[in-house]
Amino acid sequence: MSVELIERDLLLENPAGMPLGLSASRDLLGRIGSLETRIARTEREIDAAQAVRYRVFVEEMKAQVCVEDARRGREVDSWDSLCDHLLVLDRSIDGDTEDQIVGTYRLLRHEVAIAHGGFYSGSEFGVNALVARHPEKRFMELGRSCVLPQYRTKRTVELLWQGCWAYALQHRIDAMFGCGSFPGTQPEEHALALSFLHHNAVAKGEWAVDALPHLYREMDLMPSEAVNARRALFSMPPLIKGYLRLGAMVGNGAVVDQAFNTTDVLIILPISSISGRYVNYYGADAGRFASAS
């Protein structure tokens, strides 16, 4: 199903005719209970999101940052100024909006990436070739996904996806991609999950993407007959597992990111590949917030 058809269906549920993914406050992308998701509005909010990233990536996952960023308690890079920053806020927390940020995602739109030399994940995977094979499509890169430990629930992951989906509809995105990370720098520790991905989810044909040759690490670590699908899915990070349920594919080969202490795979999700039941579920929700009063 094309973005245009999805949008047409949502507009039938949106008699107010407001832009998709926006509420009366113009930027609310989703709400579940006390949690809300929207794009950061100010530099202070982006700074607070970078502080959340520091707590997760540096303090918890032992990523490496420069001395100045460590002093400030922020995880920052040059791509931050090019991206929109999706936030998850817990409105039940007392304090300023910056104190309510419990999760974040970084979104880089096609035209912005092309104007500034490409996509972040192009440093690990051959995404430039992927984009070049689809000149008629608009891509969006997802990155720097993180959630504070006490909020790592199905509800929060669902809200992050809901925000990405509404944003994609708003900007008429045709396909999304980004790195999905396993903890640690030893791919062999994730042999079951990586082998399952290799045998069952590697993108083929026009969507095929390889890890860059000098970074390529084998994912085919176990024969297919030795892979227990249930155990493999159970061992995966929730975000990667969630993307698979939506209909995502993965690139060929993993990459070890020493600076972030992770083993990365490339997630590729054409909008047209998303399961119809998820389009209906998230599409309807995006339409609900588009017409909220």
Rank of each mutant, 00 (worst) to 15 (best):
P149V: 11
S2G: 13
P237V: 03
S2L: 09
H134P: 07
M61K: 04
E45D: 12
R71Q: 12
S81L: 11
H198C: 11
R152H: 13
D27Y: 12
L192Q: 03
G251L: 12
S235F: 11
D99T: 00
K62E: 12
R106S: 02
F177M: 15
R53Q: 06
A175N: 11
D257S: 12
G118P: 09
R138A: 07
N14A: 12
V265H: 10
D99C: 00
D80Q: 08
G143A: 14
T104Y: 02
A201P: 01
R53K: 05
A16F: 02
H85Y: 00
A129Q: 15
C146L: 09
E36C: 06
G21D: 06
T104V: 14
H110I: 09
V67P: 05
L244S: 06
I240K: 01
Y105W: 10
L35A: 04
T262S: 15
S2I: 05
A129S: 15
V157H: 10
R245L: 05
Y54T: 07
R106Q: 03
A208F: 10
G122A: 14
F119M: 07
G30T: 10
R38W: 07
A16K: 14
A286I: 07
V56F: 00
C66Q: 00
C164S: 06
E4W: 11
F119N: 04
T185V: 11
R217G: 04
A208P: 05
E43L: 10
R26L: 06
L266V: 11
H116G: 08
E60D: 08
A70P: 01
G242Q: 07
Q186A: 13
D210E: 14
T37R: 02
V209R: 02
E136Y: 07
D9T: 10
V58C: 00
P15M: 05
R109N: 09
E68S: 08
C164P: 00
L12S: 15
S272F: 03
D80W: 09
G117N: 08
R152I: 05
E7D: 10
A49R: 04
S78R: 10
R106T: 03
R106G: 02
L86N: 13
V127R: 01
E68T: 01
G253F: 03
M219F: 09
T104D: 03
T263H: 09
T156F: 08
L107K: 07
T262M: 14
